[in-house]
Design a protein around this nucleic acid. Structure first.
Length: 446
RNA sequence: GAGACCGUAGCUCAGUUGGCAGAGCACCGGAUUGUGGUUCCGGCCGUCGCGGGUUCAAAUCCCGUCGGUCUCCCCA
């Protein structure tokens, strides 16, 4: 009998677990620095929580189940937003606004795994609830950028691509597309890169057909979709691109906030960013590898109607999700996971590795290790039987211990050898000073 | 849900027209019974993913299945 892990899941051995904690640490640190508080909810919910927002079709993408003998159907959470909306709706008006929450849940989706997509993954969610302003929109983008920056990614590596439902609607109006065709237009914007050029042109012309200025409108639409607009160039290029004031106004407000947050180099406007506009109501954004090579690293936007949909008061809200899978691929590819030491460099480093060099020293080894641990230091020792100090020092340096404490013949005089494994210097210290000396060495090599 | 490629030691992989399952790395021991990443010597390491079929003989060919990778679909 042999067992394999279920399709699309991962085992986290120490090195991959260290990578995961490294990423989660950057997420958590950025969240807290920006004033967000951590929350969580159940790992499974009533399946209806997901069908309310996304329709019955979503059931095929869920891991759902009934308790044996029970009648309720549950589903492992495929996203956190419905849980968040449920929590906010349940709290009603009792929470002081704005609510600034973040969470790092494990999510489950019953999809066929492929590059950048698994069936179980970790996703960082950040939301600002209760404020409808470009400042709140940009604050969520800023916290995302801060986490990526902390992980070593720069604007040359990742780019925020921003669109706005209101702005795109204004643009479509200006092109002569009536409101009832905006849904089809959004789908076309979303799929433009995946359609054959001919198919794109056919659908575009059908969309713009009967507007009189069809050819001119098509040219302007293509021009707008062809390239992204850097934040700094929005005003300069607005005229040439034929952006109407209704589209420009919300983008200008976001651009001003991006500049204020020093995020202009990270961001550009891109009307091809559509996402699930079914419930997004304002700004929408994605974070992509700079050349667009991978699937989106993060995605989010404003969803002012969602809390109301789950039975709460109407609350403006903006937020995003960032998964660990695509981000992990990107960090790996850029050599940002532990640097030259590889992933092992992300593992916790022992402060001291205690070595016994004789049978009388064996009796003291556990006491010294215990004393170091009681003092809050990371102390290890070998489980091997060899007395070969060279081999034991090898073991100490392989686990990247900051120093080695060698217990030997000098114990008779109340002394132990303390070796700095970084520089190699070694000296005798009184056994009673070991904790203080190890702590001093460890702090110096931080 | 549909398709393509892949699965051999802990890891990376080789294995020719079907003919005794291999290498490097890693690991363990020794050289060196008290000083670390080098070197040398030695050792350990297999359900060739799993099941079935063809054959005197299958890691190799065929069928099925599980898993991985990638694409379509979808992407909250």
């Amino acid at each position: 009998m042999s067992f394999q892990a279920p399709r699309g899941t991962r085992d986290f051995l120490p090195e991959s677990m260290a990578v995961r904690r490294h990423v989660e640490g950057a997420w958590r640190k950025a969240s807290i620095d920006f004033g967000f508080e951590e929350v969580d909810g159940p790992t499974f919910e009533h399946v209806e929580l997901y069908t309310v927002k996304s329709g019955e079709g979503i059931v095929n993408e869920l891991f759902s189940f009934k308790r044996s003998g029970g009648s309720d159907t549950y589903a492992l959470r495929p996203e956190f937003t419905p849980t968040l909306a449920r929590m906010l709706a349940a709290a009603g008006g009792s929470l002081p606004l704005p609510v600034k929450w973040f969470t790092i849940p494990t999510l489950f989706r019953a999809e066929r795994p492929q590059r950048g997509r698994l069936r179980e993954f970790v996703q960082w969610n950040v939301d600002v609830v209760g404020i409808d302003s470009p400042a709140a929109d940009v604050e969520t983008m800023a916290v995302a950028a801060a986490a990526l920056d902390r992980l070593g990614l720069r604007p040359k590596d990742v780019q925020l691509r921003i669109s706005h439902r209101g702005a795109v609607a204004g643009l479509l109006e200006a092109l002569g597309v009536p409101a009832e065709r905006h849904g089809a237009a959004f789908e076309l914007l979303d799929r433009r890169d995946r359609l054959e050029p001919e198919e794109y042109r056919r659908r575009r012309d059908a969309l713009l057909g009967g507007t009189g200025a069809g050819a001119e409108a098509a040219r302007r639409l293509d021009e707008l979709l062809r390239r992204t607009i850097p934040v700094a160039e929005l005003d300069a290029r607005a005229g040439a691109l034929g952006l109407p004031e209704t589209a420009l106004e919300p983008l200008r407000a976001i651009a001003a906030e991006l500049r204020a947050a020093d995020l202009a180099p990270w961001a550009s406007f891109d009307f091809g960013i559509v996402r699930g506009l079914a419930y997004y109501t304002g700004v929408v954004f994605e974070i992509h590898e700079a050349t667009g090579a991978e699937r989106a690293v993060a995605g989010g936007g404003r969803y002012d109607g969602l809390v109301e949909l789950f039975g709460g008061p109407r609350m403006p809200a903006v937020g995003f999700g960032m998964g660990d899978v695509v981000l992990g691929l990107l960090l790996e590819e850029r050599g940002l996971l532990g640097g030259e030491g590889g992933r092992a460099a992300l593992l916790p480093r022992p402060d001291a590795f205690v070595i016994s060099a004789g049978s009388e020293a064996d009796l003291r080894l556990r006491a010294v290790v215990s004393e170091l641990r009681r003092a809050g230091l990371h102390a290890r020792h070998s489980y091997r039987t060899t007395r070969n100090v060279g081999k034991l020092l090898g073991e100490a340096s392989r686990c990247r211990s900051r120093c080695a404490v060698i217990l030997g013949a000098e114990l008779g005089a109340g002394l132990v050898a303390l070796k700095d494994l970084g520089g190699g210097e070694q000296r005798l210290v009184p056994v009673g000073d070991v904790v203080a000396e190890v702590r001093r060495l460890a702090q110096r090599s931080e």
